[in-house]
């Protein structure tokens, strides 16, 4: 006659069966999403979650930030006053540069028209100014959250800049919120151009805080130390011998406050 299974053994078996079931359900969800079969539903759910959490996050942020600012301000009063004076000087320099750039831009426009060049002038692209309200919730990506979304004219793929240079591109949008993948994210690859001949290369992110890696630098057009790289919508065509160099983003990605989303989508 078979001995009845002890109660505890049955309970343990039931527990691990349930765990196994949850693991299988999770694995199925991951597989379906990875194959793109859940994209519509998941994106809609993520948009709704972002919209639902947005007011709560803002309310908490409104409560916590003034407290943080009060202590930060009290502790750093001296350095803030110096920073303020430096910023005033910086502003005067920038105003002078704007005056000089006006003339140069007019000359560039004339040249572009004469040569029929497809030139995108960032200054003429409409922008949406947004505040950075959050950083990535994952430790395995470099993203920030903006307080502007679909209802404000922000769309997936749009580039995001600060006063100095490229910050990243929009990868996800909700009604009043957008997620920006920073150029330091390891999945980010940006075409860059440099030098008077407009040589092309590709800058890829290496993780937060790390320098960008610039690949496909043609040996015939070496990059000099300190040279400025500009982003390009033209893809680098890897040909001939190439080198790899490091580059530092001009934009200060560690302390982003307000940014501009360019209402322009790069050609596919």
């Amino acid at each position: 006659m078979a001995r009845p299974r002890p109660r505890r053994a049955r309970r343990v078996r039931r527990t691990w069966l349930r765990v196994l079931g949850l693991v299988v359900v999770s694995a199925v969800l991951v597989t379906l999403d990875y194959r793109g079969e859940l994209h519509g539903a998941v994106n809609a759910a993520r948009r709704s979650t972002a919209d639902a959490l947005n007011p709560v996050e803002r309310a908490v942020d409104d409560v916590l930030h003034p407290v943080g600012h009060f202590f930060a301000g009290a502790l750093e009063y001296g350095s803030l006053a110096r920073q303020n004076a430096e910023l005033r000087l910086e502003l005067r320099r920038a105003e002078g540069q704007v005056l000089r750039l006006g003339t140069e831009r007019r000359e560039l426009d004339q040249l572009a028209r004469l040569e029929h060049l497809p030139f995108v002038d960032v200054a003429t692209i409409p922008t949406v100014t947004a505040e950075v309200i959050g950083q990535s919730s994952s430790n395995f990506e470099a993203t920030v959250t903006l307080d502007k979304g679909q209802d404000d004219g922000v769309a997936v793929g749009m580039p995001v800049v600060d006063g100095l240079g490229l910050v990243g591109r929009v990868v996800q949008v909700a009604s009043h919120q957008a997620t920006v993948e920073l150029i330091t994210d390891s999945r980010s690859v940006v075409s860059v151009t440099y030098g008077t001949a407009g040589a092309l290369a590709a800058a890829s992110g290496q993780g937060p805080g790390a320098a960008l890696r610039v690949d496909y630098v043609p040996n015939r057009a070496p990059i000099h130390r300190g040279e400025l790289l500009s982003t390009s919508s033209v893809r680098s065509t890897a040909a001939g011998t190439q080198a790899t160099v490091s580059a530092r983003p001009v934009a200060d990605l560690g302390s982003l406050g307000f940014v501009d989303v360019l209402a322009w989508e790069p050609p596919g």
Binding site: V23, L29, V30, Y34, T49, S137, S138
Partner: peptide
């Protein structure tokens, strides 16, 4: 967590369960 992360949906659920 998967609803607020752009990683594959279900990945955090798998990690959490295990």
């Amino acid at each position: 967590t998967d609803l607020v992360l752009p990683t594959p949906f279900g990945l955090s659920a798998l990690v959490g369960t295990l």
